Amino acid sequence: MNWDNLITTNPDFIWYDAGLTVHLYFREATNLPVSQKFYIYLNIKHIQIQSRDIIYYFLVYKQKTKEPMAYIYLRGGDSTDWISPAKAPFGGVQTHELCSSREVIFLLSCVENFVKNNGGKKIIIKTAPENYDISEYLKLYECYNRSNYEPKDIAKNHDITVSNTPFEDIITSAERRRLKKCRKAGFITIPIPAINVSGVYGFVSTMKNHLGYSLSISLEELKILFSTFPDDVKVFSVNDHNRIIAIAVTVRVNRGILYNFLVADRPEYRSYSPMVALLEGIYKYCQSDRIRILDLGISLDHHGIEKPSLIRFKENMGAKPSLKITWQKTLDT
């Protein structure tokens, strides 16, 4: 990971401990550019989309080398609950490859110190799925535990490992038959080159509303996401001739991970299961662009309860489960 773009001057607060320094920034968030190698949700531009509230950025450095070892941001200040992320699939600590547990634990202790002194009662941290980076996941799991955080929620995330294996060889035989049915009907899966964001949003929200779901993002927020990250947000569709029957909005989390963010299909085409054809097209795109993980996300119904049928579908697509933990710490008063 290249951390060269992280600034090391003019912090709002500083903590020191045995060769380590933690810097806190919150006055001018634009003064904290983030390396392209970060997860997109930790990119300063994405963070600014997530919330208009004050965001607090904590970085831990080695004093001798001035090299940043770990980073976390939180939304807080006007609430007793301080949260990372403000509004994204995950936030939490991201570390340098050489970062030690001691450095992360010192960072978390400084966060706790500042939050407690500013009226905070609770810290909530939603972390990345374990399959994103197993070594970082295990290191951070230990650090949250040792810092007396407790799991508030443990969700089951699913992702497909992208390889040279053809998509039809990783899915179950029943899903292969549905894929062949889509091909026989002449359905075509394509990336949409010229995107009408309002049209995409209208399609997804209409189809979701039929199922009792609401979207986690507004039209305005989606427009800002597309305009801010034009190379990282892409739309794929399954077409029956000139008619769009299924859509997926994907987000490039980093160079090696693609997140299947928003998906929807027309109910009258469900007998064809166009979602299978849609995922095949996205999987092929991942193969061509050297993306190693296709993240299908967690599986919840419109009440926020785990949905077994959606889990079965993802596993039929060759996806494997991994844990996605939200940590919580209630602060002593």
Rank of each mutant, 00 (worst) to 15 (best):
K156N: 10
L74R: 01
A128Y: 06
I125E: 04
I125F: 07
N117Q: 13
C99P: 15
E112G: 01
K156D: 08
Y132W: 11
I105N: 03
N145L: 15
S100F: 05
P129V: 11
Q94N: 06
E97G: 01
S79N: 15
C99K: 07
S163Q: 12
K139I: 14
C143M: 10
Y144G: 03
S163L: 04
R75Y: 14
Y144H: 07
D78T: 14
E142V: 12
K152T: 05
G92T: 07
R102D: 07
I125W: 03
K152R: 06
S79P: 01
Y141S: 11
L107W: 13
G91Q: 09
G92I: 12
S101T: 11
F90P: 01
N117W: 06
I83D: 09
K122Y: 01
K87M: 00
C99H: 07
N113Y: 06
N148K: 13
R102C: 10
N118S: 08
E97T: 08
A88V: 06
K116G: 01
Q94S: 05
L108W: 11
E136C: 14
E103I: 01
L107M: 12
F114S: 01
R102A: 10
G91V: 03
K116E: 14
I160Q: 06
A70Q: 03
R146A: 00
E97N: 11
I72F: 08
I105G: 05
R75C: 09
C143K: 01
N157Y: 05
I125P: 03
I105W: 00
T95E: 02
V111A: 03
V162G: 00
Y141V: 09
T127V: 08
N118T: 10
E130D: 12
R146G: 00
L74F: 11
F114P: 00
R75N: 07
C110F: 07
K122I: 06
L140A: 05
I124G: 00
A70R: 05
S163K: 08
T127S: 08
S135D: 14
S163C: 04
P85Q: 04
Y73V: 03
S163F: 12
H96A: 10
P85G: 02
D81N: 12
N131A: 13
P85R: 08
V93M: 04
D81C: 10
Y149M: 01
P129W: 13
S101Y: 07
Y144L: 05
S135H: 08
F106R: 11
Y141P: 00
K156G: 00
F114T: 05
R146H: 03
